[in-house]
Design a protein around this nucleic acid. Structure first.
Lengths: 81, 81
DNA sequence: CAAAAAATCACAATATATTGCGATTTTATT
DNA sequence: AATAAAATCGCAATATATTGTGATTTTTTG
């Protein structure tokens, strides 16, 4: 996911929860200005800023291998260990 | 995931790939200093910095609902739409 | 349509991430 | 143990995110 997709996900999630930017701002401690920028896919938030927002609206961040690498990894697994 | 876990995942992934910090730094355009900080769970990288690193080592970022919320959502789904 | 709420914008001040450089420490290799 | 490679650290300079304030626009509500 890139910033644009992340911003959309946050906005959508906020919509599902039915909570305003102001509320998320106050609960997360992130300013409304910053929240607006993130939701719009602008700016370049610091990780903690993003994590604070995500945590507030019940989302978490995960890391997964890119799809591109799945097959390669699947092949390697047979030879490894 | 928090910064510490993210840092560990990056370090582990780099180990699996068998590539040095210097190499990842040059490929990603992120300075070694910053990479060191991220891997050690220190600092507070900007999202693009993190994405550049992840992209270089074949990891991607995903957002998922926190487990805590699964049940609530399952209930709501019946009423929605 | 009018009023209220929510979202967006502009801007200056402040906080903080990022970088390059060189040095140092730790780890791997022979 | 000696050498080389990799990882870590310190620091000053620079770039950039964050914030609060107040205004403006957009959307919702009655």
């Amino acid at each position: 996911m890139n910033l644009k997709e992340i911003g959309l996900a946050i906005k959508e999630r906020r919509g599902v929860l039915g909570v305003s930017q102001r509320a998320v701002s106050e609960l997360s401690g992130v300013s409304v200005n910053t929240l607006v920028a993130v939701e719009r896919g602008e700016g370049n938030p610091q990780l903690f800023t993003l994590l604070d927002i995500l945590d507030t609206i019940g989302l978490q961040l995960d890391l997964t291998p890119k799809k591109m690498y799945y097959e390669i990894e699947a092949n390697n697994n047979e030879k490894q260990q």
